[in-house]
Structures are given as structure tokens and as C-alpha cells.
Design a protein around this nucleic acid. Structure first.
Length: 627
DNA sequence: GCCGTTTTCGGCCCGACTGTTTTCAGTCG
């Protein structure tokens, strides 16, 4: 059973409880569990096998035991009891935007719709005949809305479409630099999943701080690539670009920018947790600022842990504290500022609290307990996963840039070193002898070329990206390794394998003394291909024990490993390298997306080996102890 | 049903929007 199916089932249970007027917090608990599972990058079934279901937020004893029953027997007795007595036809309707349990139940019972397989069409028919408007609580407008919603649903527009991060990032960057040309724009920052640098983005929202909202909005609406203006208000506007992308703009006064930025950055779960936390201090949070609840005698100042809150201002009329900066908003809660990439309610609020108490007491704990000091782009000293245009008759795609172009780019990026990791020569089309010969010539070619270029400031590792064949063997003969400084290994074929077999295969491939890095470890392609099955804990332990690194592949539709797995791995002490997998020199700029994955996985520079200077990375690649 | 600066019992986020309402219910993010 997939995560999506499990999430859907739990939502159905929540809906059933709602209709049966169960305790509303029980309903919220089921919805929360569904949400967590839906967003999890880790298969819930894998967690179950590892006995770690409760590690997911919102999954406690009861739901764990129900899921256990589900995986063991394929059904849950308790769930079936909860669902009895409710018309089955309501559940398909819950997938339609705008339909909740109450509306679905009322329509299904009033119109006596019984067949879950035909309910969509049945309801559409009833609506068109005008049978919905007379039902109490409905009217002409809602009837019309239902018709439209059902038609959209039938056309398959139910699922939100998400685009890869780099695509959204580029669009937003262009608009932001356009906005900043206007003198009334004090700050312009992307919001939501884009600011948190999530691998896929739904909407593009942009926040602007300005004292002249009207001027900013007019300027925004003059953006050259607009196809249509969707909405224009006093504090924001929405446009549709020629490429079909919708952009929402929100303008807020600079004095009151902090709470708004915090609120719209999310994530939803982070905000919920933060508001629950604030509530215990007698503070109520919203996009407008911080309110004192009546039962609290404290001011927001006393809630802080000695951190200065510079930009706080009390708005008498609204009885709310306003903040110019997001930092001060967090400080007013007694917390250090939390980087957006961490705001997923995956332990960051707890870590921020530990940090606050540590900063306050300096209680000499030997291990710093707070938020990680996240790795940054400028910490990166090199890129080991670059494909050149040297034609070694590979089985996969060749790069497009020459050694010189790659070296020039590396100089531009301030790198100390790069690794040329072309794909291995085709394994099926050549004899072993020929493969060895190709790899030998390639080494000679690069060495000669390096001597003749002036960019000797950049050091070169002559590497290779070698396929791990389905039997676990590497796709080049043993003798060819003599001509390579180290290799990256990866899976490019036979993705459908049992978990045990795939795990054995990959560990086998990594086991060669020159194999140092596993590239794109899960094999996923965002929106195109699911990850292959692999025993991730086994892989993590193997890497720790044998000093192998996993790659964070920065290529836009890979971003692999995914951030949540990076977080898991780092907790266990696994080391990473960030590779761009560039096939053109300009693509070496993709490093920032790899950095965003690392940061979302709580990585510090000590977790990323390519932050090491040349001498140390050389030592590590050669298999010696790094001091 | 979940979960824990203190609390293994007793709490549980906040506001906007929409449509039907005449003061609110449902849904959404």
C-alpha cells in the first residue's frame, strides 16, 4: 500500500468520525496523521518493517497499531466499524476540491446516491437538473459551483501541479529583480515552499515591503511578460504570465513585514506547532503580529530569552505587537531565528528551544544542542560530478563542454578542484581490452590538456561515473581502475528489483576500494520515476563503516537524495558530497539547489565532504584517513 | 488520538473566504 493510499484511508476515517460527531481532536489527529504520511518521502511500509512507525509526527500508539494490522492483514477491523452506517458514495466526493465530509454527506443522503462508482456522474446529473439548489443550506450559486467543480474533477484537474524548484526559482528571481528596480520597493522575497527551497513548488508568491503599496502594485502589473491580470487589490495583486504561471504579490508596510513573512513562509505544520507553543506562553500568533491573551500578564518582552527585539511596536487599535523583521518575531517568542529550510516541524522548534536555553545559561554541555549551523554555498570547494565532452563512447549521455570551458567555470565559481566523472564506456559494445584502452587514453588526454591550460589554479580529479550492473559488478574491468583517481558509482538500469537484491547490488558496487561515492542514491526522477526500493538503514550503516559518501545530486529533476533522507542519514553520521551532474559547464551553477537539499536535511559544512580543501579531499578520495 | 520547557493529564492554531445566512457553517491554506 502506498503512502498516498494510506493517507487517503486515514482521511476517510477522519471524515467518518466527523460525521459521527466524534471528539473533534480525534478527527484532527487522523487528519494530521494523513498529512504527515502524504508528505513523507519515506515509505510508511518501510518504517513499519523497521518498527519505527511512531517516528512520524502525529502517529501514536493507536494509529500505529491500526497500520500494523493493515500491513499484516490488508484491513483494519476498527476502521471498518467506523465506516459502517455511512453511505459509501460520500468518499469519492472527498477528493474534489471544495467538498468536505458534511457537504458530501448531505448531498449523498438528500439525493439518495448509493453507488460510489457512479456518484460523480450521478451528482453532476442532479445538479444540472436543478435538484441541489432547493436543499437547505444550498442555493443557486453553490449548485453552479458544484457543477463546475465536478467538471474540473472529471477533466483530471484534481491534483495540484507542482513544478521543479529551479524552474520556479528562475521565474521568481526575474520578477524580484524587476520589482527591485522600483524605488518604493524596500524588500522583495519569495514566500512559501519557494522560500523554504522545497524540491517541488506549487504557487509562486512574492512579498514586498513598501510604504507605497499602490505604486508597487502598478509597477508589478507593468511586468513585461504578463498575459492577464487576474486580481488587483489595495494590498496585493495576481497575474498570469505568458508561460501560464500564476504569480501572487503581497505588499506590506516595512514596519510590519516580519509576521507576514513568517506566516506565509510556512510550512503549515511549522506554523501550527509555533502557534501551539506560543499559546502556552499566553501569546496568539497570526500574519498580523502577536497578541497577548487576557489570561497572560506577561509582555512579549518577558517571553524572550534576553534577545533584543528591536523592531517591535504595539498597535493600540488592533491590540497587537507588530514586527519589522522576522528575526524579531521569533525573538519575541524567546527563540532564535529559524532558517526557512528547516521549517517543516521536524524538530526545529525543539532545537531552537534547546538553543535558547543553552544561550541563556551557557551550561557547559559538551555537545551544542541547538539549531545546526547550516552549510552554505560559499563553503563548497569543488564539484566532483561533472561530465565533459570527451568521447569515450559511453552507454549514457556525453557532456557538451570541453575541459577548458569546465575549468573556466570552476575558476569563476572559486573552486579549488573538480572531478571529471564521465559515464563509463559502453559495457556491451566493447571488449574489456578496448575499455581499458579508452580509459587510459582519456587520462593521458586530460593530463596533457591540463598542462596546456592556464587555469592550473583548479585541481583536477580524473574520475568516472561507473554503472553498477544488475549483478552488482562494476561496468569496467579491474585493470581500468589504474587510470582513475576514484570513481562514482550509480544505478542506471534494472530499477525494478526486490529491496534485498537492490541493496546487495549497490553495496557490492560501492565495495570496490576506488568507489567512494554513490551518485543519486534513490534513483528518483521528480514527477517521472519513483525511487527504487532499497534498505536505506543498511546503506547508511555500510557508508559509515566503510567511509563511503552519498551524493546529493543537484540536477533539477533529481535532487536526490531527498532532503528528509539526508536528515536521517546525517543523524547517523553519513557523509555527503554535493554533485551537479553537469553536462554543460553552465550547469555547474546548479550547486545552489544541492545546497538547498543539504540545508533542508540539516547538513552542516562538516557533513559535506566537498567543503574540504583540496589536500583533504585528495586524501579522502585516495582512501586514506582524513585528519 | 496525540503529545510533553512546567503538564503522562489536559490541553489541542488562526484567519480568510464563500454562500447561505440575519449570526453561522463548511472548507481551505
Amino acid at each position: 500500500m502506498t503512502n498516498q493510499e494510506i493517507a487517503r484511508l486515514l482521511r476517510q476515517i477522519a471524515a467518518a468520525y466527523l460525521l459521527k460527531q466524534e471528539n473533534r481532536f480525534k478527527i484532527i489527529a487522523y487528519e494530521r496523521a494523513a498529512e504527515t504520511i502524504q508528505k513523507s518521502n519515506i515509505e510508511v511500509k518501510d518504517l513499519w518493517e523497521a518498527g519505527k512507525l511512531s517516528s512520524l509526527a502525529g502517529i501514536g500508539r493507536a494509529i500505529s497499531s491500526h497500520l500494523d494490522e493493515l500491513f499484516r492483514t490488508g484491513r483494519v477491523k476498527h476502521f471498518n466499524q467506523v465506516l459502517t452506517g455511512l453511505p459509501k458514495a460520500i468518499f469519492p466526493l472527498l477528493d474534489i476540491p471544495g467538498f468536505g465530509p458534511k457537504k458530501a454527506y448531505k448531498l449523498v443522503s438528500e439525493l439518495k446516491l448509493v453507488n460510489p462508482h457512479t456518484v460523480i456522474n450521478d451528482l453532476l446529473g442532479a445538479a444540472r437538473k436543478g435538484k441541489i439548489a432547493p436543499i437547505a443550506g444550498f442555493g443557486d450559486k453553490s449548485q453552479q459551483y458544484i457543477i463546475e467543480a465536478l467538471q474540473r474533477f472529471k477533466q483530471g484537474q484534481t491534483k495540484e501541479r507542482r513544478m521543479p524548484l529551479p524552474y520556479a526559482y528562475n521565474i521568481a528571481t526575474n520578477i524580484i529583480s524587476y520589482l527591485k528596480q522600483h524605488q518604493s520597493v524596500v524588500r522583495a522575497i519569495p514566500l512559501g515552499s519557494l522560500r523554504r527551497m522545497v524540491a517541488t513548488i506549487g504557487d509562486i508568491d512574492i512579498a514586498v515591503a513598501s510604504k507605497n503599496p499602490e505604486k508597487v502594485i502598478d509597477w508589478f502589473l507593468e511586468y513585461p511578460k504578463i498575459k492577464k491580470i487576474l486580481e488587483k487589490g489595495s494590498s496585493g495583486a495576481s497575474i498570469l504570465l505568458e508561460n501560464g504561471q500564476q504569480i501572487d504579490l503581497r505588499v506590506q508596510s516595512p514596519d510590519n513585514f516580519g509576521a507576514m513573512l513568517q506566516y506565509f513562509t510556512g510550512s503549515k505544520n511549522h506554523n501550527i506547532h509555533l502557534r501551539e507553543f506560543a499559546l502556552k506562553k499566553g501569546l496568539s500568533l497570526s500574519e498580523y503580529g502577536i497578541k497577548l491573551l487576557k489570561r497572560s500578564q506577561k509582555s512579549t518582552h518577558s517571553a524572550s530569552s534576553g534577545r533584543e527585539v528591536k523592531s517591535q511596536k504595539y498597535n493600540e487599535k488592533l491590540k497587537i505587537f507588530e514586527f519589522a523583521s522576522e528575526k524579531d518575531f521569533y525573538h519575541a517568542l524567546g527563540l532564535p531565528w529559524i532558517p526557512p529550510e528547516l521549517r517543516e516541524d521536524s524538530g526545529e522548534i525543539e532545537a531552537a528551544l534547546r538553543q535558547a536555553s543553552y544561550d541563556k545559561h551557557h551550561n557547559g554541555q559538551d555537545k551544542y544542542p541547538g539549531l545546526p549551523k547550516l552549510v552554505e554555498l560559499q563553503d563548497i570547494k569543488g564539484d566532483l560530478h561533472i561530465h565533459s565532452d570527451y568521447n569515450l563512447l559511453p552507454s549514457h549521455d556525453l557532456g557538451e563542454s570541453s575541459l577548458k570551458e569546465i575549468l573556466d567555470q570552476a575558476v569563476k565559481l572559486g573552486y579549488q578542484y573538480i572531478g571529471l566523472s564521465d559515464h563509463n564506456p559502453s559495457y556491451t559494445n566493447h571488449t574489456s581490452y578496448r575499455i581499458i584502452d579508452i580509459i587510459k587514453r582519456r587520462r593521458y588526454y586530460f593530463e596533457q590538456n591540463l598542462k596546456s591550460t592556464k587555469s592550473t589554479r583548479v585541481n583536477l580529479f580524473i574520475m568516472l561515473e561507473v554503472d553498477i550492473l544488475s549483478n552488482g559488478q562494476l561496468a569496467i574491468p579491474e585493470k581500468a581502475f589504474e587510470y582513475l583517481d576514484a570513481v562514482i558509482v550509480s544505478v542506471h538500469s534494472s530499477f525494478a528489483m526486490s529491496k534485498e537484491k537492490m541493496t546487495r547490488r549497490i553495496i557490492n558496487g560501492l565495495n570496490h576500494s576506488k568507489a567512494k561515492i554513490l551518485a543519486h542514491p534513490t534513483g528518483r526522477l521528480i514527477g517521472k520515476r519513483e525511487a527504487y526500493e532499497i534498505d536505506i538503514d543498511k546503506l547508511f550503516s555500510y557508508c559509515c563503516e566503510n567511509k563511503k559518501a552519498l551524493e546529493i545530486n543537484a540536477y533539477p529533476d533529481r535532487l536526490d537524495m531527498p532532503d528528509t533522507l539526508v536528515h536521517e542519514a546525517i543523524k547517523k553520521g553519513v557523509k555527503f558530497v554535493i554533485g551537479t551532474d553537469s553536462h554543460k559547464a553552465q550547469q555547474m551553477d546548479l550547486m545552489k539547489y544541492g545546497i538547498s537539499v543539504a540545508r533542508r536535511g540539516w547538513a552542516q559544512s562538516s557533513d559535506i565532504l566537498t567543503t574540504l580543501p583540496y589536500n583533504k579531499i585528495k586524501t579522502w578520495l585516495s582512501g586514506e584517513e582524513v585528519k
